[in-house]
Design a protein around this nucleic acid. Structure first.
Lengths: 216, 216, 216, 216
DNA sequence: TATGAATGAGAGTTCATTCAT
DNA sequence: AATGAATGAACTCTCATTCAT
C-alpha cells in the first residue's frame, strides 16, 4: 500500500512499517560514523525522529539493533551474490575481477563499507557481536572466494596452492581498501587523488597473474 | 637504554622520573589489548603501580595519555631500516621478501603490531595524532616500499606500473596480517591453525610473480 | 451470575460488559503470582485478550486496577461461614479443627490465598485498601474466631484467657501457612515434601491442648 | 578510634571507615520502609550523605548492598545465639520462652523486624536474594529451634512428634508477630493497645503446654 | 609528590500512560 | 469502544575527573 504522492506524510501516529527502516538507516549512519560503543541509542532514535523508547519497540537491545543493521546491509545479500556466482558466464579470473568491482559498487563505495572497520575496531570488546559478524559476513564471504578458487584450480585455470591461505590473497585488497576508505587520513598516499577503481584493477591484475599456473 | 652508571639509583623514595615511562608502558599494553574506550585509567595506574590520582599528575587527561603513548612508541626505527635497504645485497624481489619477514619479526609478531590497529580504530577520534602517525609511520614506510619498487622498475626486474598504486600491492599483505592478528576472532578462517610465515610466503610469492615483466 | 435469558448474547462485536470482569480476573492471577510492582499492565491486558489501551479505558491507572481487584475478590462469604458456625454440631475444639480444614479447602489451597500475602506486601502502599481489607476480611475473620473462643470459655471447654490475644493463637497457623505457601522458597524446610494437612493437624492439636483448662 | 567530642566532624574527605556503616544503616531504613525493588540506591546514598557513585565504591550492586544489610543485622549474629543456646542454664521450655523474648528484644522490636516482611513480599521477584535469605537466616533459625526441640524430646520434656513440623509450631508466633508489626494497620485487632510481650507470653505458654508429654 | 574517596554525567533498558486513528 | 505506536521518566551501574589531605 504505497502512499500516493499526494497523501501528506503522517506527522505522528502509525508509521509501523516505515519505522524499522528509518531506525536501521539512522543506526547504520551512526555506527559507521562513531563506532559501536560510542553510538548512543538515544541518538539513533533522535536521528530517526523517534524517542528512545520507540527504538526498543522494534529492537530489543542495542546489540540486536546492530545485528539487524548487519543483516539488512550485508548478510541478507549473500544469497543473491551466491546466485550471481553460480550463474556467472565467464572464467574464474573474470569472476574475481567482476567480484572486486561488484563489491566496490555495492559495499566499498557506500557507507556500509564502514561496518568492516567498525568490526575490526571493536571486535575485542564485543565478542558476541564479533562472532555474529564472523558467522554472518566473514565466513560466507570467504566461502564465496573459496568456491571460485576451487573451481579455478579444478579447471587448471589457477595453479594449485593451499586453498585456505589463497583466500587471503583475494581478500587482502578488499580489506585494505575498506580500511583505507575508513581511515583515509592515515593510509592513503595522496587522498585527494585516489581512484579506487584503478586500485582494484591493479590488484586484480597482479593477483590473477600470480594465480596462473607456472611453467616448470 | 640502561641507566648510565653515573646516575645513582634512587635508594629510597620514588624514582619519580621513571613514573611517566611506567605509565606509558602500562598504557600501551592496555590500549593495545582493549582499545581506547575500554581501557580504564585506573587500570593503567594500577599496572604502573601508582594510584589513579597520580596518573593525572603526569597526564592531564586520558586523551593526552593516549597521545603520549602513540608519540612515544612510534619512533625512528626508519633510519635503521633505510640503512638496511640501502646496503641490501640482493635483487629487489629478495628485498621485498626480506622486508616481509623482517616486518613480521620486528613488528607483526610483537605488541607494537597492535598500534596499527589502534590507529585505524581511533584515527577519526584523534585527527591530530592520526596526522602524526601518518607522517611518522605510514609515509616513511610507504617511502621505503617506493624506493624498492622504483629500483626494481628501473632495473627491469619489475614491470612498469603506476608506482603510487603499486605501493599498496606491497602494503596490503602486511596491513591485512596486522589487522587479522589484532582481530583474530573475526578474520581468520581457522584461528588455531594459522601460520603467519606461510601466509607471508604465499603473499610474497604471488606478489612477485605479478610484478615481473610480462611477455608481449 | 449467568446472563439472564432475555439478554441476547451479542452475536458479533465485543461483549463489552464482560471486559472489566475479564481484566479483573487476569489481574488477580498476575498480582497474586508476581506481586504488584512486577505485574505489567500489558500482560494483564494480554491475558484478558485486549490491548493495553483498552485496559486504561476501564481502569484509569494500575493503582485503580489493583484496588478494583482487591475489592472485587474479597466478598461476603462470611455470612455463609457465620451460618455454618452457628449451626455447627460439635464442641468448640471440633469447631476449630473443622475451621482449619475448611479454610484450607476454600482459601489456603486456592489462589485466593495469594491475596493475603498481597495485602501484607502492599498494605503500606495502599492504606486505603488495607483499611478496606481489614474491615471486610480481617476483622470478620477474627470475629468468627472470637465467637468460638468465647463460647468455649463460657462452657468451660477452654481455659479462661484474654480473648483478644487468644484470637492470635488461632490465627497464627493459618497466617503462617498462607505466607509459607506464597513464599515457599523461603520458609519451608523441605518444600518438596511438605504436607499442609499434616501441618494443620499438628497445629490444631497443639493449640487445643493448650487451650484446655488446667489443673490447679 | 572514637572522635573526641571536640574534634569537628570532617565535612568532606576521608570517612572510609565510617562509610559502610552509614550506608548500611540508611539502606536498612529504606529497604524496610519501601521494600527492595522500590528502594532506589540513589536515595540510600543521599540518606547516608554521599553520592550515588560512592555507594558503589563500597557495595558492588544493590543486591550485594541488601545482602550486606542482612549479614550485618541478622546472619552475623547466629553464632552468638548458638553460643547462648549451648550454654543456657535451664530446661527446654525455659529456653523457648527465653528465645521468644530475646528475639523480641533484638529483632522483633527493632526495625530489623521489617526485613522478614520484606523477604516474604519480594521473594518471588528476586529468587537469588530469597535463596540467600533462606540460607543465611531462615535455615539457621530453624536449626536453632530444631536443636531445642530435639533436646527436649530426648530428655522427655517434650512429647515425641515429627520434628520438622514441630519447628513451625515454634516459628509461627514469631513470624506472625513480625508481619503484624509490619502491617499493623491490617492485622491487629486493637493496634493502639497491643502488647507484644503479652502476646508472646501467651503464645509461649500455650505452645509449651501443647508440647508436654501426654498421659496415655 | 602522591593519594584515593568522592563525584555526577550518562549509559542501556523498562514500562505506565497517552492519544491519533 | 478499541487500538497499539509512541512517549519519557525512572531505574541500576560505570568511570573520567577532582580535590582535601
Amino acid at each position: 500500500m504505497p502512499e500516493s504522492p499526494s497523501s501528506p506524510p503522517a506527522k505522528r501516529g502509525r508509521r509501523k512499517e516505515a519505522r524499522p527502516g528509518e531506525l536501521l538507516e539512522a543506526a547504520l549512519d551512526l555506527f559507521v560514523e562513531k563506532g559501536y560503543a560510542a553510538t548512543r541509542v538515544e541518538e539513533v532514535a533522535a536521528r530517526a525522529g523517534v524517542s528512545k523508547g520507540t527504538l526498543f519497540l522494534y529492537f530489543p537491545s542495542k546489540e540486536e539493533l546492530f545485528k539487524a543493521v548487519v543483516r539488512e546491509n550485508i548478510s541478507g545479500r549473500f544469497s543473491e551474490w551466491q546466485e550471481t556466482l553460480t550463474h556467472f558466464a565467464g572464467n574464474c579470473s573474470e569472476m574475481i575481477e567482476y567480484a572486486f568491482f561488484a563489491w566496490w559498487e555495492r559495499i566499498g563505495s557506500t557507507k556500509v563499507n564502514g561496518l568492516g572497520k567498525l568490526m575490526v575496531s571493536e571486535a575485542n570488546n564485543f565478542p558476541e557481536i564479533a562472532l555474529f559478524y564472523r558467522n554472518e559476513v566473514v565466513l560466507p564471504a570467504q566461502d564465496l572466494i573459496r568456491q571460485i578458487l576451487k573451481r579455478g584450480m579444478a579447471s587448471g585455470e589457477f595453479r594449485d596452492i593451499d586453498l585456505e591461505y589463497a583466500i587471503y590473497l583475494v581478500q587482502a585488497p578488499l580489506m585494505q581498501l575498506d580500511l583505507m576508505q575508513s581511515s583515509k587520513a592515515i593510509c592513503i598516499v595522496n587522498p585527494d587523488n585516489f581512484d579506487p577503481q584503478k586500485y582494484l584493477k591493479m590488484h586484480a591484475d597482479n593477483l590473477l597473474v600470480g594465480l596462473r599456473p607456472r611453467a616448470a
